[in-house]
Each structure stands twice: as structure tokens, then as C-alpha cells.
Amino acid sequence: MVFEVFRQERKGQPFQHAGALAAPNAEFAEAWAREQYGRRQESEALWVVPRDEIRAVHDFPDELHKTYHRVDGYSLKAKLKEARQRAESAGALSARADLP
């Protein structure tokens, strides 16, 4: 059986994929994982997961180019520039309107 090992380096950090190992069962997998990824105290914790239990998901089509639910869908630079210019000239106008 193949097991995938995920390693947390420090408390509070995300678990990251560290590698795979082959073992006849979970008990041996834990022993190998401890040897490969924990014997120098380089890990806070490990997740040892049978590869077959992992559902791998790929391909996320975006046929409608939906940028409105991402930050890159909001390019404000040009609009902000225009709005600032507008406010500036409006301010200038109203400043003139205040003149007696």
C-alpha cells in the first residue's frame, strides 16, 4: 500500500505534503513516516494517509470567465483616477460658486 505523508513543521502551520511511502499496513506506515520525517524533531505532527483514500480533484473550468468573485476582477485604478479627477474639477467648480 502507498501512503502519503503530510508534515506540519511548527505548531499552527499548515500541513504540507512531504512525500509518499510504501508499507504493508497503517502501523508500519507510521513507523516509516516517523523515521523519514520525524527522527530529527523536524516535524510537529504528521498525517499519514492511504493514497487510495485521497480523492484527487483536477480541472476547474471557468467558461463564463467569472472574475467578479476574485480580487483580479476589480481593477479600480482607471476608475479611481477618473473619479478623483471628477471630484477635483467639481471641487474647483463649487469653489468658484462660493465666490461672491
Binding site: V2, G19, A20, L21, A22, W32, E35, Q36
Partner: peptide
Amino acid sequence: VQDEVGHAQLIYRVVEDLGKPR
């Protein structure tokens, strides 16, 4: 020596996933 054998284990695992059993 343990480290180097450990490297061999990791590397053979990669080879195994490419299709050649250890």
C-alpha cells in the same frame, strides 16, 4: 548511513510511481 538508505527509499518510491516496482 540511515539517511542515505532513507534517500534510496524515497527515490525508489518515485520510480515506482513512474511504473517500475522497487
